[in-house]
């Protein structure tokens, strides 16, 4: 029995929230939910009452009445105010999370690419700057290939320390993470359920996505846009690290990259994939 009521306690079903703006979004859902519950009981109550009270009985006669303009006007204006108010009320949260001029200054910048069926993430490396690639320079898009999905121009010094992870990424806690998302094939959707983030990524465009986690831990990235048979398996993991843990990881990666670069000196290899996992294939 308790289980049945749990189904109606909608707010309890949200996955844990780790995002700074997540609580606000969840609360907006709650506002509409409680409003809906009121409207639901009101309309269903009235309907139930009428159905019982005015059910056919011997001698009962319908009331020939065609309606009343004042009543009509009332139930036009009231919902208009209510719904329009609701729309305006929720708009600031929308602006804050999605408007591109509201995206905060990035503490960490990552490029993310969706592919059938997985995710790449690219970090700017030790210099904190991306080299020439399909994101920083549109004309580098022709360099994109299955082995070099980000279209990295390997002749650019600034890009020598950029590195790529596959099906996982790491971010620091309490930092503004700005992700530029795109795709190498079809549409995907960058969905971080615990971060209350969802943004379709489109081949040929770079979407600006941001979030800020207030808690460390391991969470999941899913694809929310049908992208083919393997859509369901487009799972990746991300870890929210403490600031020092994140720095340590970055240092580790940076030296890994240096080493890899040294070994392949002179060749024109794209950014090495330094870490990958296939969490979906179990």
């Amino acid at each position: 029995m308790g289980d049945i009521f749990k189904v109606f306690n909608m707010m309890a079903w949200f996955p844990e929230n780790v995002s700074t703006f997540g609580a606000e979004l969840d609360n907006l859902f709650g506002v509409i939910y409680y409003l809906s519950v009121v409207i639901f009981f009101l309309t269903f109550g009235i309907m139930g009452y009428f159905l019982i009270k005015y059910r056919h009985k011997e001698g009962r006669k319908g009331y020939n009445y065609h309606g009343n303009n004042i009543v009509e006007l009332t139930w036009t204006i009231l919902p208009t105010i209510l719904f329009a108010g609701l729309g305006l009320y929720t708009d600031s949260a929308w602006a804050e999370t999605k408007y591109s001029h509201k995206v905060p200054v990035a503490d960490v910048e990552i490029l993310v690419l969706g592919k059938q069926f997985g995710w790449y993430a690219m970090y700017p490396g030790a210099d904190g700057k991306f080299g020439r690639n399909a994101y920083t320079d549109r004309s580098a898009r022709h360099l994109m290939s299955t082995t070099n999905p980000f279209g990295i121009d390997s002749t650019d010094e600034a890009g020598m320390d950029d590195f790529v992870t596959e099906n996982q990424f790491k971010i620091p806690v309490n930092s503004n993470v700005v992700v530029r998302g795109s795709s190498i094939d079809v549409l995907h959707s960058f969905f971080l359920p615990h971060m209350r983030v969802k943004q379709d990524v489109i081949p040929g465009l770079w979407m600006k996505i941001w979030f800020n986690a207030f808690k460390t831990g391991n969470y999941e990235l899913a694809c929310a846009e049908l992208c083919g048979g393997g859509h369901y398996s487009m799972r990746a993991e991300y870890e929210i690290l403490s600031k020092s843990g994140y720095d340590k990881w970055l240092d580790q990666k940076n030296s890994d990259v240096k080493q890899l670069r040294m070994m392949s000196a002179g060749t024109t290899e794209p950014a090495p994939i330094v870490e990958e996992s296939h969490p979906a294939s179990h």
Partner: peptide, 13 residues
């Protein structure tokens, strides 16, 4: 719910 773009972020798709 879905008509509110902010709320739609999570429930879309």
């Amino acid at each position: 719910f879905m008509a509110s773009a902010a709320v739609d972020i999570f429930i879309h798709d």
